[in-house]
Write a protein that binds this DNA or RNA. Sequence first.
RNA 1: GCUCCUAUCGUCUAGUUGGUCAGGACGCCACUCUCUCAAGGUGGAAACACCGGUUCGAAUCCGGUUGGGAGCGCCA
Length: 470
Amino acid sequence: MADKKKVRVRIAPSPTGLLHVGTARTALFNYLFAKKNNGDFILRIEDTDKERSEKKYEEDIVESLKWLGLAWDEGPVRQSERTEVYKKYLEKLLEGGHAYWCFCTKDDLEAQRESQMTNGHAPKYSGHCREVSLDEAEKRLGSGKDAVLRFKVQEKEILVKDVVRGKVQFDTSLLGDFVIAKSFDEPLYNFAAVIDDHEMNITHVIRGEDHLANTPKQILIQEALGFDRSEYAHLPLILAPDKSKLSKRVGDLDATIQSLKKHGYMPEAVLNFLLLLGWNPGDEKEAFSLEESVKKFDFKKVQKGGAIFNEEKLNWFNSHYIREADIGRLANMAKEFVPKEFADSSMFEKALEIERERMKWLTDFEELAGLFFKLPDYPASKLKWKTSDVKTAGKHLEKVLGIMEESLGNGLEGRVMEYADAEGRGDVLWPLRVALSGQEKSPGPFEIIEVIGREEAIGRVKEAIKKISK
RNA sequence: GCUCCUAUCGUCUAGUUGGUCAGGACGCCACUCUCUCAAGGUGGAAACACCGGUUCGAAUCCGGUUGGGAGCGCCA
């Protein structure tokens, strides 16, 4: 049958920290590839390390992925709940002579590693326990000796066909017998990942380049177990501005999704930014919704070199999406970042609509929009237009006040503008706007009136006139 | 040290089979719009790491050099 296997990919983070932006991008590319091919995207929690894994981090992974909108089709599957599965294969490997018990102590291994390094060799396990027979090993185990399971590495050349990198060759004689489990109940990453990818019918392993060196080890295990080899795609790394692997912080941001969320970034901005880090659509379009990305995505356009995390560009995407977003949706997101009295106010959405084009982050709203809710205190001198004086400002304000009091319904803006055009826009509009906002920089006077209402506006103008006459 | 990966503006990148004023975006600068700010519009500065080859012609093909990164765990 020539039927192609259904595409199945996975994102497999370990819950040892908050979801990293690098992991998020890997998740995105997995998601895009899966959806593009009508395949499945699976979430697998790699929590075999009991000491370092924490439930709260798993929760963060789930929450962050949801926030980004990267919906998975299966999972979360936890490796910690699959020890029986791994045990079965561990036994099989042991029986087949592909693995053996190793009784070497950590100290011995450490000393070995160091001497190898100083002698200019790649650190590699000596194979010391390789010849210990299974009977003998079990005897020692029975007498309470500590041991780990090592994989017997067959020395050979392995050619990996990587979707983004092309052919990559490895010499496994450099590897040394690596540890695949601390015990029957404690499998380690390279082993557990292979078992799961097989059992879950993963067709394409899409992951960060930092895993490239693990690939030959995993292929060796696959071969020993008679598994099919999956397709591999190793994504370039996201780099910090100093070109090192992006680990902890970028500016005052943590390199985690949670940190981005807290700083007032929109999920679509983060996604769009991550999408263009190491991938390009082949044309000059830059703004992509998740749906559009799915249609456009292609591994041929994935970059090979690492990409620096450019905060400025992320910021640009963010302000772009703040301006573009559906106002109701934006309001919902912005509510988390403003005082309750703002969020509950009937002015909230109108104010947001006006201030959104000035916002770089959702967190900007509170400061920008404060003037709507409470007129800031300001000195009378601020009402003076640059080519004029305070007294003239007062005169114009009196006149505008008159117009405002007369214009009950519409027509206010037209009439004020008519007056302003006659008297000089700056002379009229500047004092008006400062009277309404109390600030040198603000939205236009009519926008402010639209938000705070005519009555409040009249009050503020009267206050300005009072300030001047004092 | 060893193995692997990688190399176009400051940054993200376009550049299918060699011929482009080396294109776009972010950022930066100028101008413009404008009562201010922001947004918008227009324009500008800004790159093929280096050295050799192959060729009439190389960012593109080949070789080397240098730089950068990752990995080398009883972490993932």
